[in-house]
Design a protein around this nucleic acid. Sequence first.
RNA 1: GCGGGCGUGGCGGAAUUGGUAGACGCGCUGGACUCAAAAUCCAGUUCUGGCAACAGAGUGUCGGUUCGAGUCCGACCGCCCGCACCA
Length: 857
Amino acid sequence: MSRYNFKENEAKWQALWDERGCFAVGEDSARPKYYVLEMFPYPSGRIHMGHVRNYTLGDLVARYKRARGFNVLHPMGWDAFGLPAENAAMENRTHPATWTRDNISAMRRQLKAMGLSYDWSREIATCDPEYYRFEQKMFLDFLAAGLAYRRDSWVNWDPVEDTVLANEQVIDGRGWRSGAPVEKRRLQQWFLRITAYAEDLLAALRSLERWPDRVRLMQENWIGRSEGAYIRFELTGDKPADAEHLEIYTTRHDTLFGASFCAVAADHPLALRLAEGDPELSAFIAECRRLGTSEAAIESAEKRGYRTAVAARHPFMAEREVPVFVANFVLMEYGTGAIFGCPAHDQRDLEFARKYGLDVLPVVAPPEADAATFAIGDEPYLEDGVLINSDFLDGLDVAAAKAEMARRLEDSGAGERAVNYRLRDWGVSRQRYWGCPIPVIHCGECGVVPVPENDLPVTLPEDVDLDSPGNPLDNHPTWSRVDCPQCGGAARRETDTFDTFFESSWYFARFCSPDADRAFRREAVDYWLPVDQYIGGVEHAVLHLLYSRFFTRALRQCGYLGIDEPFAGLMTQGMICHETFRDADGAWLPPGEVKRLADGAMVRADTGAAVTVGRSEKMSKSRKNVVDPEAIIDAYGADTARLFMLSDSPPDRDLDWTEAGIEGAWRYVNRLWRMVNGAADLPPPGTPMPADCSAAAADVHRTIHKTVDGVTRDLERFRFNTAVARIRELTNRLEDLDRAEAGAAWVVREGFDAVVRLVGPMMPHLAEELWQRLGHAALLVDTPWPEADPALLEDETVTIGVQVNGKLRGTVDLPKDCGDDAVEAEALQLPGVARAIGGKQVRRVIVVPNRIVNVVV
RNA sequence: GCGGGCGUGGCGGAAUUGGUAGACGCGCUGGACUCAAAAUCCAGUUCUGGCAACAGAGUGUCGGUUCGAGUCCGACCGCCCGCACCA
């Protein structure tokens, strides 16, 4: 009885829940559904503390909602494609598929040891052809719907590895593995037309009321809507014969009269055209490309340009022609890849103008400024003001000038209002092996031909050479050779695979009907979706969550589903942090290799040498400040680890992992264990409350109901740390109650039942065991959530603070809702109050019923 | 640079949303039990002064609103995160 045997109990209850299929669910119209989902893991091989937190949070929600009577879907799967499998395959001489399968087995075992209430019958792995075959079909549907297309695009090219690198794999302009300078190359790439939904993805953010504001804001910024205008400048000067106009995009069309140059991106068609006969310009463009992504270029951000012989005529001043530059700070990907420069009212334009000696003509002046003398110094003028030097706009404010200019542009045909987005189409091609093959065939005669549906899935070849440079699918001797489905001639498979964000953009929907022979069984997705509560790291705030929102819309457009938003509620968890340790040489030390001496100093466990303790940082392999969850579960059990994950910090905040913290959780587990098991002579379950309860017992009785109420409200609002605190407080009260008091035994039984039920979603094994020991026949997982008696939530007496001039001088205990006069009279009699008043004139007494009294003297 | 968040005891964090600051936990101090240790239990623990009663100060800094401010407003300081030449 002394110590809780978690090993035995956790294994026992896990086996029993499993055997009884407690968490397997199906559609059930009789009960309200609740779909709780945690972001599925990449099968790296072992779970880390971030997983433990994520899945503890999810399991708490799932078990709580289940107890509240919901039909809860709580599935788990594996985000199983990705580059690490290829790297591991090269290092360990295994096949990516083998490596991935082994990792999944290992991690599944670890997750099961946590006692999570998953419906394991719905498990999926995205590398399974029975999964990815459906996304190949989706892609073909997207293609038919115009949501997928192919075009040239710039990529990071590693000339040594002979492959494309993701942005994350380019470090300081060099390939992360080869160290070779990365080149920009233009390749044909597949894209998904996420920009078609830009406005909708933005507007619908407002409807996601149960998402953190922060995430909504990040998506809003990412989509980056701006309102402006396209303006066409007529080209003059020494221009290519067929280049008549230059179209630019601006949000400051009000400043058009301040234009002193135009600039195009290095990759702008006009620049490329001019470069054909101009080696100097060619060199400049090559230079821009080379420096484009490097850290150095972005850091220094030096504005550089090449002045072409082409000029552009101002749309409203026939006599004004401005030079056209090719400039390194103009982005081809945004707007039209061309701008007009108004140096007086734009930081970059001003820097550029000063460097190249261009006019700086102010066209907006501060309201109080003298228009005749207002001039721009080192800083552009960016505020609202009055238009000057601007013909028909003079005297207007910025907003009115924009409106008027837009009208004039549209009337004259020189331009029109336009909305632009920062968001770009999603490039999904990856020149990698361990991903889902893109199901198209390239035919010399027919062009791009979709793989016929009957031929799906296009599966990966098993015999693959991962050691040679380049795309392994490209290198495969036979895999890509195929007959054209249309003309039957020799053709070639697409050898690119999908970005792995593709798989994670629809997995939540596959969980609804994981065995369906189509992507989804419609009744299943209609019943379960959207996900009611999604939980995961904030690092996915934009990419994964935005892609999934887009995918859901695209799937709806193609008739797969009937909803727009996949995740009705989102909770983003903070990171797990840990102190960092370094030895005298500055090398990082793992927590297991240091120990704390009696005086608090930290030393190396082996040599006793001094260790510097750094601040707590996110657990990471590079800093070696990681703690292995399996070791913790071995030493303390899953329930203890889970409790600690919930105890100290709110879920969205970072959590400091400490040895002392896990010890504290372990202490509480044992305390509960001893308390419940040590109680003698409890009345059997269901015994009615005795009439003769002492005041102390009745008070604890009330505390039990207040705790049930408070914890329930905390869980609804995801305030798990305060929920834990309340439960511990009730535990303290129950321990303190004198068992000799009349009615105490009954109240203690009520309290034990309540505590055990409240901790059920947090520490399910311990709770299940204690529930049984308390004499209940049903499983705790099948027992409804406790309900508080509303009559017991309000006290009959209240403690009212009494202030004099805002300073607390005492308290009075009075019956609830007694009159203000009575409260005031009691308050003024307090010795501390009288002393503080000290014979001065009482000017005013403010009484806030049941709260506080403030005496003003 | 732009956008957002956060500053409360030795530490993690509470505070009914303007009403008794510091719940709960960790740590620490003292005591009980023990030959001893661990475990457990009891008491204390914001700071300053005092044996104490008590008094004063106190939620990053300065100012404001209010009977009353951790909470609202203004300015500043510091830390963290996201985006970053987006015209």
